[in-house]
Amino acid sequence: MNRSVLYWRAASFAVAAGFVALWQLIADQRLVSPVFLPGPDRAWASLVRGFASGDLLDKLLGTLEHMAYGWFVASIAGIALGAMIGSSRTMRSYVAPSLEFLRPLPVSAVIPVAIAMFGLTQSMALFVIAFGAIWPMLLATIHGFAAVEPRLYEVARSLHMSRLAIIFKIALPSASPDILAGMRLSVTVALILSVVCEILAGLDGLGHWVLLSARSFRSADLFAGVILLGVIGYLTALAMSMVERRLLKWRSSGH
């Protein structure tokens, strides 16, 4: 790590610390009623308490579970469908209009449909999260497969590579930057929809925790939940970009 990277990292931590300090100041000065705004000290205490009792950990794991399942299903389906649609021009022209209709559909409009179909259940949450998270992945995969360098297909033809070998040795790695970018976007979508589903269907998770805390004016608990959600978002994005950097080492190695 060189000096300037260190410098910028220190600067960004300083800004974050500044915000926390400002928050503490506002809370201490009672500019906002403590019923609604706890200080960072109280939020932190609530976090510690929640983890000590195990409640918050359960909720955290619940949210992570919803998010992971939905994201996993969306990834598998998105990449498989995207590969099929993206690698065939005919498929693209047949399917693209339907996709264009479905894509801008707000997921919030799909939730009542899902509730009618599955009830207030885990399956409903899985369906909604997967439905919402599939789009970035599906569209990125279609684009990635459609943009494979045609020259490489000619190389594959002259080497008599099998269809399977072409998919796994040429198309998939070539589309991997797009696919990974799609996966990074959709992990965030999955988090948002997990919270929404937990709130709407009362499923065990941070969304439910946040809702109950707000309703009973436990502002410190509410903030603890929100902070934890922020941390999940931050860490998953960080993990995805680390995976991306590792897998796409070949891209950044240019002069």
């Binding site: 360098e149 020259r151 490489l152 000619e154 190389v155 033809r157 002259s158 080497l159 008599h160 040795k169 040429i170 790695p173 070539s174 991997s176 796409l248 070949w250 891209r251």
Partner: peptide
Amino acid sequence: APRRDIAIVFQDYGKALLPW
């Protein structure tokens, strides 16, 4: 159809190699 014992060297080497 193309044959495995006929090899083609393309001009645009950058596109004919697997960058990954």
